[in-house]
């Protein structure tokens, strides 16, 4: 049974790779050249998938003001991954348990002590992260730890790619099927409650999705930088639109663009892939921040200046 699934999965990935290469084949040779290596092809597919899922989820992270929570969960996932490795479980289960425990712990600290949310989060995730570092130090090599922390998309193999593909499909399906409860909960939790939606279920569902995304991105950008991919695309898209669906599409586009361009640059310049991807995302944000039509700095400056000119004109008219 498992073998059939695995063969099917590998077949699916090969099909996707083939389609992807058709697209790459249209590019000029200088751009397409790195992708003649099969490890680069796998890396490209992974980067696109991760950029898309992170982009989708980052809308909710940004709108729900969960940036710090995303950071906390991504760090807290480390001991879960380590313990799952020890017990021979799939990564994802350990990661989810660790992520959920941390978010419950943060909530409990916040409610039952004088601590505010930021202190509760900082405390929980650093403790969990430290535990993870200690465990991994005992059971694996330093390179292994570095790969989990910072990702290594150039070394992606079929099992990891399969996991990413599966997580991505699941996240997409979940956001599609539960779009209304998710929208309502992100926008106005009290309203969701008044309409009889189970907000506890939505809350932990969203955390589950977040953990899923983080695990899916482990291999590409790693635990530490994944939070950048969970914030930057959404933040960029938020500056550009006043519609949630448009924001999701833009955010996915930013995530995918950053991943692909970052991957290419990392190959050309021989730098770390995770870092390159995040830097490209940050550059996209910076450009948007300057040039966005309504919320951009230039637009704001222009509006302020025009107002001033109008004011001055009025002033002069009053004088004469």
């Amino acid at each position: 049974m498992m073998e059939i699934l695995e063969t099917l999965g590998i077949g699916l990935i090969d099909a996707l790779l083939w389609v992807l290469m058709l697209g790459v084949g249209l590019l000029p040779d200088t751009l397409a050249e790195p992708f003649s290596y099969s490890f680069m092809q796998r890396a490209l597919l992974t980067a696109i998938l991760v950029g898309a899922i992170c982009g989708l989820l980052s809308c909710f992270v940004v709108l729900k003001r969960w940036s710090l929570l995303g950071d906390a969960i991504s760090h807290a996932v480390l001991p879960g991954v380590a313990i799952a490795y020890l017990l021979g479980w799939p990564f994802f289960i350990g990661a989810f348990i660790a992520g959920a425990l941390t978010s419950v712990g943060i909530g409990a600290l916040e409610r039952h002590t004088r601590l505010k949310a930021d202190a509760a989060m900082g405390l929980m995730f650093t403790a969990a992260f430290a535990l993870g570092v200690v465990i991994i130090g005992k059971i694996a090599t330093n390179t292994h730890l570095m790969h989990i922390l910072f990702g290594n998309v150039l070394g992606v193999q079929y099992p990891a790619l399969l996991l990413t593909l599966f997580s991505g499909l699941l996240a997409l399906l979940a956001v599609w099927a539960f779009y209304r409860p998710l929208l309502l909960y992100t926008f106005d939790p009290m309203q969701a409650q008044a309409l009889g939606f189970n907000t506890g279920l939505i809350h932990y569902g969203l955390i589950l999705l977040l953990t899923l995304t983080i695990v899916a991105s482990l291999e590409t950008v790693g635990i530490i930088l994944v939070v950048a991919m969970l914030i930057t695309p959404g933040a960029t898209a938020h500056l550009l639109t006043e519609r949630l669906t448009t924001m999701m599409m833009l955010s996915v586009a930013v995530g995918v663009t950053a991943s692909v361009v970052g991957l290419y640059l990392s190959f050309r310049l021989d730098v770390a892939s995770g870092g390159a991807i995040v830097l490209v995302a940050a550059a996209l944000f910076l450009i948007t921040l300057l040039l966005a039509p309504r919320h951009g700095l230039l637009a704001r400056w222009w509006r302020a200046k025009r107002l001033k000119i109008i004011d001055e004109k009025k002033f002069i008219n009053q004088d004469s």
């Binding site: 709108l63 992100t186 926008f187 106005d188 009290m190 938020h238 639109t241 006043e242 519609r243 949630l244 448009t246 924001m247």
Partner: peptide, 10 residues
């Protein structure tokens, strides 16, 4: 004050 007016929604 309970509502997020920055939310991208019409």
């Amino acid at each position: 004050e309970a509502v997020e007016w920055d939310f991208p929604i019409s």
